[in-house]
Amino acid sequence: MKAIGVSGPGKTDVVLLDLPEPPPPGRGQIVVDVEAAGMGPWDRLLNTGGWDVGLRPPAALGVEGVGRVRAVGPGVQGISVGDRVVAHDAPLPGGSGFWAEQALVTAAHVALVPDGPESVVVAALPVNGLTAVQVLETLALTAGKRLLIINGGGSTGALAVQLAAAAGLEVTATASPSAAERLRDFGASEVIDYHDPAWPERARTGFDAALIAAPGTASSALSLVRDGGQLVSLTSDAPRSERGIASTDLYVRPDAAQLARLATDLAHGRLRVTPEPVPLVDGPSAYDRVAAGRTAGRKVVLVP
């Protein structure tokens, strides 16, 4: 089968591969025919040792995707052959990921996809959506509280803006001017141009919490959080706590129930995503753009 990934141990170049099909699913596993698979900046960690997901090269990369169930292993309940499912899976049970025509997946990490949205749209959801949900769950802010989202125009930030606004939070986001109208439409009450070196001075202080989705911005954001507030970084650079502020790093985890709710919100129009579909064979060049942050806020999704 065609796949995009790394050709051997220690290899860092992402290339087109011809891999064997996954083995028959074991207990608690399923095999899916992949219809769409998401890409993100985290994928560069899979083949550089930064995120150990059990990759066994030669192997496809990718920890999120949508597909039709091809085979079901023993002990799996509520999932049948032919079902359309979505998953964020890590570690990868077969040592190989979603950037392929087929993938072996942990059934407990899978959610059924509601009728309506196309697979390429749903595939833009898992890692970014779960991250946004888990940040807001960690912060546990109540309606009316003020949240600062750094890089609100990115794939995770834009979903966090929508979820936070729906929860009644007052959201301020940093983003490029080209994303401002979209984020206001998503519910942001204020959008600040991050290109302006003086943006921290243009923001009102006293935020109850800050969500960091851009490297190198956490310290500036911390200065805008009130005493006793919270800061959560998605870029592994949460600064030392000060003024009683809880400052932590967050790493996404698979959660089928959360993913099912996200897929339902997407199907009912309560969430919007902006995928950029790319043919699987063009995956290496797409990966280079994603790793370099050259996606203009759009989520790249590979389509076999």
Rank of each mutant, 00 (worst) to 15 (best):
H109T: 12
L141W: 08
A90M: 13
G38Y: 04
D288R: 15
A296E: 14
A100E: 00
T142L: 03
P304G: 06
R27M: 02
K2H: 15
R184I: 08
Y251D: 11
G62L: 04
T138C: 10
A218L: 00
D13S: 15
K145S: 11
A103N: 06
I150M: 12
Y194F: 01
V113H: 01
D52N: 15
N47Q: 11
G95H: 02
E181N: 09
S189W: 02
A175F: 09
D13N: 11
E181L: 10
G26I: 11
R289V: 11
L55H: 12
V32A: 05
M39I: 12
T248D: 08
P58C: 04
T142F: 08
S119Q: 13
A140F: 02
A37C: 04
D83L: 14
L280V: 15
N151E: 09
A59C: 04
G5Y: 02
L45S: 07
L148K: 06
D208T: 02
A246I: 04
A107T: 07
L147D: 01
L130N: 05
E101A: 14
V290H: 04
D115H: 12
G187Y: 07
E64S: 03
R204A: 14
R243V: 02
A87T: 13
T174L: 03
T274P: 00
T156I: 15
R27T: 11
A60H: 04
G157E: 06
R204Y: 05
I245G: 07
V252S: 03
V81R: 15
E118Y: 14
L302C: 10
V63M: 06
V120G: 14
L46R: 06
S80L: 10
L234G: 05
V133Y: 09
L45C: 07
V300N: 13
A180Q: 13
P215C: 04
V32N: 05
A36R: 01
K299G: 01
A188Y: 10
W51A: 15
P254L: 12
S155P: 02
L234E: 04
T48V: 07
E190W: 04
L224R: 10
L17K: 06
A166E: 12
G129L: 05
P126K: 14
L163H: 09
A203N: 00
I79L: 14
L139S: 11
I4C: 14
G157N: 13
V85Y: 13
A107W: 01
D208M: 11
V63E: 00
R253S: 14
A164Y: 00
P215S: 13
Y194E: 00
V133S: 02
L183N: 11
Y251E: 02
S96P: 01
V161F: 10
L262F: 01
P9Q: 12
I30C: 07
G293F: 03
T248N: 12
V135H: 05
A291M: 05
G206N: 09
G206V: 05
L280Q: 13
A218C: 03
V105P: 01
A260F: 02
P22W: 07
V232A: 13
L125V: 15
D83E: 10
P41C: 10
P114K: 13
V6G: 08
P254H: 04
V32D: 00
T138W: 04
I212N: 00
A3R: 03
G116K: 11
S233P: 13
H109M: 12
